[in-house]
Amino acid sequence: MSKKKIFVVDDYPFAAYATKKTIGILSKHDYVVVDFESPVVLLDRFKLEFEDVVMVITDYEMPNLRGSELIEELRKIKPDIKIVVMSAWLDTSTSEDKQLIGKEVKAQNPDLILAKPFPENWVNKVDEILEEVA
């Protein structure tokens, strides 16, 4: 049986890479973490490997495919996929369209929402969700 996987996507250079590395080292679990800079590429890969992927960690505001659309597509393929949304627009935003992003993210009902920069214990929170699928 092949190893279970986590996909991470963020269009901001190195953001997905840093997230991948951090999970790889700090997580109690042993997953293969794959990082992407394009949600479209992630989706293509997910179509092939969805059986092994237990969690997708995604940025929300991305060109080509927005977080909401990506989540929708992922769930169509695998309804019980664990979703973690990360965004730099959460919490401090004052403008209305940015606040809408916050509401939109919550409406997607992800398993975890991470505001950037991540809180110190964020990997623990990811671990807790991974425990549910273990």
């Binding site: 901001y12 590395k21 951090t22 080292i25 950037k116 920069p117």
Partner: peptide
């Protein structure tokens, strides 16, 4: 200010993550 903050959060997030790994190593 909001845009600057947003732009800064990205690199800050990456730096904090990488620092947390290096602290283990």
């Amino acid at each position: 200010m909001e845009n600057i903050t947003h732009q800064w959060k990205q690199p800050l997030s990456i730096i904090l993550n990488l620092v947390s790994i290096l602290k283990i190593e």
